[in-house]
Amino acid sequence: MALGAANASAEEPVEVPSGLDVVFHDWLDDQGAHRFRFIAPEIGQGGKQFDDVVDDMAHLCDQFVLPQLEIQELQASQVVISLMAEPVDFGEMAPDVTQFFESYSVENGLCIWELF
């Protein structure tokens, strides 16, 4: 597993349809699946729930991930978007931190939602 070198800055907010505060955290190549992880402090525990952010996750795939992959001249067949209330080391259990995940296949330059 290798960390991708996205051109996006980890400090700059990423706009999403709901207006949620989202910041790019990191990008991992996990055996061919590109995992893009974002921090969204307003999710879970009294904040936005999965149904409130599902459109944001699709937007992140289409408007953030696909351009980053193109910049890096990478092809992807699968993309996983993660929203975390706070940073969590990849693969670590963090039951007190809300995390949402969605998986997308990439076909013809589009993110297509897959049931995770």
Rank of each mutant, 00 (worst) to 15 (best):
M84P: 02
R35E: 15
L28N: 05
W113M: 04
F101V: 09
E15R: 08
M84F: 00
D56G: 05
P67M: 01
P87N: 08
Q63S: 11
I43F: 02
A40L: 01
L83N: 00
G19M: 04
A5R: 15
L3D: 06
S18M: 08
Q45A: 10
G32L: 05
D89G: 09
V53C: 04
D51F: 13
F36A: 15
V22C: 07
W27R: 13
V88F: 06
L66R: 02
P95R: 00
A85H: 10
V22R: 09
A58L: 11
I71P: 03
G91R: 00
F101Q: 01
E12Q: 13
R35A: 13
F100V: 14
Q68Y: 04
A33V: 13
D89L: 13
V88N: 01
A58H: 13
D52N: 14
Y104P: 06
E102M: 15
V79Q: 01
P13E: 08
V14K: 06
L3W: 08
E15K: 12
P87T: 03
D29N: 15
L3M: 10
D55C: 06
V23I: 07
Q63K: 02
G19I: 12
G91D: 05
I81M: 10
L69S: 08
D62Q: 15
A6E: 11
D62P: 00
V80G: 12
V97W: 00
S82Y: 14
E12H: 03
A33F: 03
